[in-house]
C-alpha cells in the first residue's frame, strides 16, 4: 500500500468555539495523541458534533439524526468515514456505506461525515498524506490563548 494513502484512525477529542468568528473547531487526535487534526466547521455542524459527543438526544431529530435514521431504515451501514484531502484549507471526506452487499462511497464535508460517524459509531480515519499536510501552526497559537477551562468543556475522556 502506498504509505501516503495509509489510513490513521482518529478520535474526536472535542469541539472548541472560536469566540472571534462564527465557527467552531473540531479537534481530532490519533490514538497515541501524537497528531492533532483541527477542522474548522460551521456553528450548526459543530453543535451537532458536540451533541453526539455528549450523547445528548434532542427532543426532535436534528439533520444528522435524520441522516442516521435514513441509513437505519434503509439497512445501510456506515463502515467508515475518511478525511481524504485538503485543498486551499478545505478538507474533503468520503463516507463509506455498505448496503445490501455493495460498498458505496459518498463525497462529504468532514463535518457531516464526523457528525454521522459519531451517531453510527463508525470509525474515523485520515490519510497519512492529509495529516502531514495539515497546518496546526495556527492552532497552537490559538490554543495557547485559550482559557484551559473552555478547552475541557467538550472533552469526551
Amino acid at each position: 500500500m502506498d504509505p501516503a494513502s495509509e489510513l490513521i484512525p482518529l478520535k474526536v477529542h472535542g469541539v472548541l468555539v472560536d469566540p472571534n468568528t462564527d465557527t467552531q473547531i473540531v479537534i481530532l487526535r490519533d490514538e497515541q495523541h501524537m497528531d492533532v487534526l483541527p477542522i474548522w466547521v460551521g456553528t450548526a455542524e459543530g453543535t451537532s458534533i458536540r451533541l453526539a459527543l455528549e450523547g445528548i438526544v434532542p427532543p426532535r431529530p436534528m439533520s444528522h439524526d435524520l441522516l442516521t435514521s435514513f441509513t437505519e431504515h434503509l439497512g445501510m451501514k456506515v463502515t467508515r468515514v475518511v478525511v481524504t484531502d485538503v485543498k486551499n484549507n478545505t478538507y474533503y471526506a468520503t463516507i463509506h456505506l455498505f448496503a445490501h452487499g455493495v460498498e458505496r462511497t459518498v463525497d462529504s464535508r468532514p463535518s457531516d461525515a464526523i457528525a454521522l460517524a459519531l451517531r453510527t459509531k463508525s470509525p474515523i480515519y485520515v490519510t497519512q498524506d492529509v495529516l502531514k499536510r495539515r497546518n496546526a501552526d495556527n492552532l497552537d497559537a490559538w490554543l495557547a490563548k485559550l482559557d484551559p477551562q473552555e478547552f475541557g468543556k467538550s472533552e469526551t475522556t
Binding site: 450548526a44 455542524e45 439533520s63 444528522h64 435524520l66 441522516l67 435514513f70 441509513t71 434503509l74 445501510m76 478545505t90 474533503y92 463516507i95 456505506l97 448496503a99 445490501h100 458505496r104 459518498v106 463525497d107 462529504s108 464535508r109 457531516d112
Partner: peptide
C-alpha cells in the same frame, strides 16, 4: 461543497 441536505440526497440517490 455538499451541504448537509445535499449529502442526504446524495446518499439516497446512491442507493
Amino acid at each position: 461543497r455538499p451541504m448537509t441536505h445535499d449529502l442526504m440526497k446524495a446518499i439516497l440517490d446512491n442507493v
